[in-house]
């Protein structure tokens, strides 16, 4: 079946089997392997991407459901970070990516793309969250390494910076 979707700002038209999951389409079809697969069963959030600006678990969305939609993956985040065109050095990281670096919000990094995408979506909907709200907002994303504290600090630092 023909599907066409905007991924990180460019349009991709492909022929997919209806049962293809969005995460497989992104990784195997489009070569965007930044989005990870963890549990493959809607629980861990490693596969989180944005669909029309909202976080979704791409292992639980069919590629055909994303037909005509606007998808952003972790690869697309850095490019869109600065509307004023200012740069932070080698790579124009998104503030959330920078905050994850600064706060040591990752260890093995497996959960990180999903964690970052979920955090960006969360802050968009809750610009001034309390720490408890951040923890609840990220409850769909599991990290087996960090103990979560530094992830929460990273999100707090971006929220504080934005206000």
């Amino acid at each position: 079946m023909d599907v066409s979707m905007t991924v990180n700002g460019s349009t991709h038209a492909n022929d997919v089997e209806p049962r293809t999951l969005l995460v497989h389409h992104l990784r195997d079809g489009l070569g965007l392997t930044g989005t990870n697969i963890g549990c493959d069963s809607s629980s861990c959030g490693a596969c989180t991407v944005h669909m029309n600006g909202e976080s979704v678990k791409s292992c639980t969305v069919l590629a055909v459901q994303a037909d005509g939609q606007d998808i952003t993956t972790i690869e697309g985040l850095a490019d869109t970070a600065r509307s004023d065109g200012s740069s932070t050095g080698d790579m124009d990281w998104h503030p959330m990516q920078e905050a994850f670096q600064q706060c040591h919000a990752l260890q093995c990094g497996y959960c990180t793309p999903g964690m970052v995408m979920a955090s960006v979506s969360f802050l968009k909907e809750n610009p001034n969250p309390t720490e408890a709200q951040i923890r609840e907002g990220l409850e769909g994303n599991l990290c087996r390494c960090t103990g979560y504290h530094n992830i929460v600090k990273a999100v707090e630092s971006v929220a504080g910076g934005a206000s």
Binding site: S55, K57, T60, V61, S121, F122, E125, G137, E139, G140
Partner: peptide, 9 residues
């Protein structure tokens, strides 16, 4: 219900 990503769908 679930988590924010679940509630988006």
């Amino acid at each position: 219900v679930g988590d924010p990503s679940v509630r988006h769908r």
